[in-house]
Amino acid sequence: MASLSATVGKLRLANPTILAAGILGMTAEQMLEALKGGAAAVVTKSIGLKAAEGHPNPTMVETECGYLNCMGLPNPGIDDFKPEVEGVAKHDGIVIGSVYAKDAKGFAALARKMESYGASAVELNLSCPHAAGLGAEMGSSLTRVRNITRAVKKAVDIPVFPKLTPNVQKIAGLALAAEKGRADGIVAINTLKAMAILPEARTPILSNAYGGYSGPGIKPVGVRCVYEIAGEVDIPIIGVGGICSGRDAIEYIMAGASAVQIGSAVAAHGPGVFAKVCAEMGEFMTANGYKRLSDMVGAARGGR
């Protein structure tokens, strides 16, 4: 049988599927559900220094090929989040702590706390498209991506994965900046900045007007971004965006990703989506003569 075990730098995973940030990751119990559903690791909600309620509803709307959201980074603040990280870590679950802040110092402080709570890695939210002054607004600057990554690397020993925004001309440039800041890997992509209007109401639906587009509709964009990033950097990539099936995950892996994250597909398939994607990947690998996942990483690149 084909082996699905994956490595992302120092991180060893039983399979390449990880729960994406912002999905279910509010409590330990929900993250444990994703692990029970087959995820090899979970990313928490993006956590900041202080509690925040996020944007008022409507914060989510379904579209033809996915979802638009403007949750606006609701979170209980890093100190209150301690039991949730510990609650997963004590069951030997691999937790990747997602953090957001307005400057490098804040990111470093949050990462240190995540590490002390038992997180196996940190993901830097440099890409949320619907929070003023945060996320993508700072994550679009090469200098800030490099400096924030560097500051967090100095603060913690666990791997540091900046999550990048596709809402820029050249995402590979951001990945290169993160690599220069000594990132251990890249997570790509976050949602695409988007809008939905209810014609009868003549108004944008989301309370923030703009939101982030996720789900099947963005998969080709994500695959393209991973392909471009893999051509620029030597550090591993975690691919994310619209993955619902084993074939979707394999597209990302063949573009150059070492592992994948799954988020929106939890709505249609529930927390069991991870086992489903893994089973489908295994079937593809067996049918096509792949013994190890690593044999497929970057396979579509043809040496590029």
Binding site: G22, I23, L24, G25, M26, T27, E29, Q30, L32, E33, K36, K45, G54, N57, T59, M60, E62, Y67, N69, M71, P74, G263, S264, V266, A267, G270
Partner: peptide
């Protein structure tokens, strides 16, 4: 409840989502 579609986790009750 926030998203109502089973994604955001705001309505967590144990390991369940109240909306789904």
């Amino acid at each position: 409840m926030k998203c109502g579609l089973g994604l955001c986790g705001a309505c967590a009750l144990g390991g369940a989502r109240v909306c789904v």
